[in-house]
């Protein structure tokens, strides 16, 4: 069986800037795949090349076994695309928007209205798209991407500029879509989002994939220390240091007393014996640590 997406060694340069510099990846049917990276890492360009919007300078792309470039009308009905900016027709209501998109694929109005219901916008059907809130707009544009039952869905930063509630709301929706057996490719710069949603991620920076794999595997591979914190004052700092003979890094910032260790079990056991667990929090490494470790800590807009 052919992979849903096969990309090998694609390159794309704009003048002297190498936007995509030798990216290879493979996505299987039913996978939830994430492309992570800071702004300007080349995520969107990579996605556009895979979708067939741009031609790669070099390298090969296969979607369902055939090339998406030049415009391949055999592949187009099988993919659904949600674009970064919400692209809606002007002065059309939510229902008119989705019905228009549906008809481009030969899908009837009934199915379109159902899809509006799936994303929870039935009560906003008669509202013009430009009057919808950010979250509603994103849901409408995802509905427009899904209305023709595509096997493969591309989502480009679907939760950018959403409030926390709207983000979680959208995550549930995306998980439901994936559970139906659809393949999803998502770009994001939110690490928590990728960690929660994706089966597999590729971390990109400066046009290259730095690392890829299931999020949990990447985190484990980092072999990072665990941070154990309890409320300040439960245990004096000096005593805490003595307890572990200096094998554990201890720090008190006036709010929390933090232990940094690679062997959290004995630390937790000792603290439990002393009944000193008030305000306990244990934080392992996250995808964010993997990301920062890979890309370096310097700030980039």
């Amino acid at each position: 069986m052919v992979s849903t997406i096969e990309v090998s060694e694609i390159h794309k340069a704009y003048g002297a800037v190498k936007a995509v510099d030798g990216v290879s990846l493979e996505v299987e049917a039913g996978e939830f795949f994430g492309i992570l990276g800071p702004n300007g890492a080349g995520k969107t360009t990579t996605l556009e090349i895979i979708e067939g919007l741009r031609q790669a300078d070099a390298g090969q792309v296969r979607l369902f076994g055939s090339s998406p470039w030049p415009r391949n009308s055999a592949v187009l009905p099988r993919i659904g695309v949600q674009l970064q900016a919400s692209s809606f027709f002007e002065r059309l209501t939510a229902r008119e928007q989705i019905r228009t998109f549906a008809s481009l694929y030969g899908v009837g109005p009934k199915k379109a209205d159902e899809m509006l219901d799936v994303v929870g916008l039935s009560d906003k059907a008669d509202t013009r798209a430009e009057k919808l809130s950010g979250g509603q707009m994103q849901r409408l544009s995802i509905a427009c991407a899904l209305v023709h039952d595509p096997e493969l869905v591309f989502l480009d930063e679907p939760t950018a500029a959403l409030d926390p509630q709207a983000r979680r709301n959208l995550w549930d929706l995306l998980r439901a879509i994936n559970t139906q057996g659809r393949t999803i490719v998502l770009t994001t710069h939110y690490m928590d989002e990728a960690e929660i949603l994706c089966d597999r991620v590729a971390i990109m920076d400066r046009g290259k994939i730095l690392q890829s794999g299931p999020p949990a595997e990447l985190v484990r591979g980092l072999d990072a220390a665990t941070h154990i914190a309890i409320e300040t004052g439960v245990l004096p700092v000096e005593e805490a240091r003595r307890m572990f003979d200096g094998t554990v890094e201890v720090d008190d910032d006036g709010v929390s007393l933090t232990f940094v260790t690679r062997t959290p079990a004995p630390v937790l056991a000792t603290l439990a014996e002393r009944n000193a667990l008030r305000g306990l929090s244990v934080r392992g490494a996250t995808l964010e640590d993997v990301f920062l470790n890979l890309t370096g800590r310097e700030y980039r807009a």
Binding site: L53, L76, V81, F88, F89, E90, L104, Y105
Partner: peptide
């Protein structure tokens, strides 16, 4: 211009129309 600016042209290009 509006369809290009709002990326509708791009969206249409990705549909079988």
């Amino acid at each position: 211009v509006t369809w290009r600016e709002k990326r509708i042209l791009r969206r249409l290009r990705l549909s079988p129309v």
